[in-house]
């Protein structure tokens, strides 16, 4: 049932998101909105060379987008832009997989997703995919600046 989508881990991150709030001295910033609802998210990053030193997100969003932003931010700290670009692509692929794919199309890449596999339920809720992938799109947009 709904628990499938709203896994405890997602609810936890929604309630107490990591890296949520303002960030002074950001080197990279992007704000994008979710056309489904007008929700928006701003991602701010401080890059040290090619590596994310600090990240923070702000905005208003549903539980899925907040939890995704929170988990993404945890992963982003210390990662290179290339690693994050790959992670974003892997996550987008993961949520777009057919809902009944019991075994992941590529188990190795599922492992690389870590906690983000909690979003498996989004496969069943096509209209909510954009909520889960929104933070990654904002991050990529910020890094592209």
């Amino acid at each position: 049932m709904s628990d499938d989508l709203y896994q405890a881990l997602i609810v936890l991150h929604d309630r107490a998101p990591r890296h949520h709030g303002p960030l002074a001295g950001a080197t990279h910033v992007a704000t994008i909105d979710n056309p489904l609802c007008g929700d928006e998210i701003t991602v701010r990053v401080i890059l040290d060379g090619d590596r994310v030193q600090t990240i923070a997100f702000e905005g208003h969003g549903c539980a899925l987008s907040r939890a995704a932003a929170s988990m993404m931010s945890e992963r982003a700290v210390g990662a290179t832009t290339a690693e994050l670009t790959a992670l974003a692509a892997r996550f987008a692929q993961f949520v777009q997989a057919p809902p009944d794919a019991t075994e992941a199309p590529d188990a190795a890449s599922d492992a690389a997703l870590g906690d983000l596999v909690a979003f498996r339920g989004v496969r069943r809720a096509r209209s909510r995919r954009t909520c889960a992938t929104l933070p990654f799109r904002a991050l990529l947009a910020a890094l592209a600046r």
Partner: peptide, 22 residues
């Protein structure tokens, strides 16, 4: 403070069709 999309998605799982958004 529950986001409308989350309300509507959980309602949907219970067979209830609601609209969420602006």
């Amino acid at each position: 403070r529950v986001h409308p999309h989350d309300v509507a998605t959980i309602a949907d799982q219970a067979g209830v069709a609601l609209r969420s958004g602006h």
